[in-house]
Design a protein around this nucleic acid. Sequence first.
DNA 1: TCCCGATGTATCGTCCCGATACATCGACCG
DNA 2: CGGTCGATGTATCGGGACGATACATCGGGA
Lengths: 199, 199
Amino acid sequence: MLEFAILGLLQQSPMHGYELRKQLAEVLGGLRSISYGSLYPALKRLHAAGLVCTDEPDRRAPLPADAPPLTGRRGKVVYTITAEGKERFAELVSQAGPEAYDDGRLFGVHLAFFRHTAADVRLRILEGRRRTVERQRDGLRSSLARTRERLDRYTLELQRHGLDSVDREVRWLSELIDSERRDPGRQTGEGPEPPSGTD
Amino acid sequence: MLEFAILGLLQQSPMHGYELRKQLAEVLGGLRSISYGSLYPALKRLHAAGLVCTDEPDRRAPLPADAPPLTGRRGKVVYTITAEGKERFAELVSQAGPEAYDDGRLFGVHLAFFRHTAADVRLRILEGRRRTVERQRDGLRSSLARTRERLDRYTLELQRHGLDSVDREVRWLSELIDSERRDPGRQTGEGPEPPSGTD
DNA sequence: TCCCGATGTATCGTCCCGATACATCGACCG
DNA sequence: CGGTCGATGTATCGGGACGATACATCGGGA
C-alpha cells in the first residue's frame, strides 16, 4: 500500500522522506498521516528492490555496531523513482486487484492517482469498492435489525452512525461512478493507454 | 485496546475465542472484525497476566518443537474473566486516558461499554473525542482550502467526502454530549460509582 | 460413506504505528 | 557573537494488528 503511494508521489517529482510524508498525508485525505516508522522501512524496501534510488553516496550501509551511534554528518536524502519503479507503478495501477477494495486506505491511494489510471480500470475500482461497502452496509444493517433490542443506547448509536457513514459512502461512490460513466475519458492525463490506442 | 474489549465482553459471560470474535465485530460497529492473529495473542497475554483463566487443563504449554505439529486432540477453550481482570477493566474504564480519543476504534470500544462507565467519565470521553475529530476537521478543511486548485478532481472528491464524514461525526458527538448533559444518570447500570456515593 | 462447510484453535511473516534518539538549520534574543 | 528553540530531517525499536495458513472437529447432504 505505502509502496504504491510512495511510487505515485515520486513519479511526480523526487522528494525527501519528510516531504513525502506531508504529501502523503495530503493525498490520504488529511485525516491519517503516515508515521516515519512506516515510511523509512518502506523506502528501504523500495531501494532494496531497485524501484527508487538516492543521491546519497553510500553513507548508509557500513556503520558497525560498536561505532558511536551515527555521529557523522547525516544529510538529506532525496529519493528518485527509477525506470523499474515506474514500470512497477504502472503495473500496480492497472492491475488493481480485488484487495484494493477491502482496505479503504488502499482505495484512497488508488483514487488519488486516478489520473494515471485508465478509464476502464477506474470504473472497475470504483465498482469494486462500492460492492465492498455495500456488503458492509448490508451486514451492518441486518446486524442492527437483529440486535436492536439486546443492545444499549450507546452501542446502538455507534452502529447507527456507522451505518449512516457507509450508506453515505455508497451514495458518494455511486455519484462518482455515474459521472465516470457519463464522461469516461475525462482526465486520464498520462495513463499508459493513450485514447488513440484501441488495443 | 483489544484487551480492553475482550475484558468487557468476558465480563458479561465466559466465551470461546470464536464467539468472542463475533461479538467483537458486533460491538466494534460491524464494519471491521478482529482477526485471529490479533485475538489469540491477546488472549494469551491476558492469560499470562492472570486477567482471564481457561477451563482447559494444561494441554497448551508443553509440545516441544520436534513433535509432529499438534496432532493431539485440541478441544474448545472457554475463557473466563478473573477478579483481577474485573479490577483491571474497571480501572481502564474509569481512567480513560487521552489516548482513547485519537484512535477511533478505542473510542468505539469505550462507547460500547459506556453502561459500565460513570457519567462524568462518559462526558470526558465524548468531549475528548469531539475535540480530536474537530481538529481533524479543521486540518482537513484548511488543507482543502489551500490545495483546492492544485489537486485533481478525484483527490478533491476524496477530501470532500472525508471532510463531510468528520463533520458529521462532530455533529453526532455533539448530539450525544447534549443528551448526556440533559440526562447524566441515564443508564449507568453497574458502574463502579453508585449514584448515591458523592465521593 | 464420504466429503464439505461451519466451527474452532493457533502460528507465521509482514506491515504499520507511536515513541524515541539524533542531527541540521535558521531565527530570534541577550 | 553565541545560545537555544522550533522546524526540518533521518533512522530504529518494540509491539500490536493483520492476512494467510494449518490443523482439528462435527453435522448434514450427496
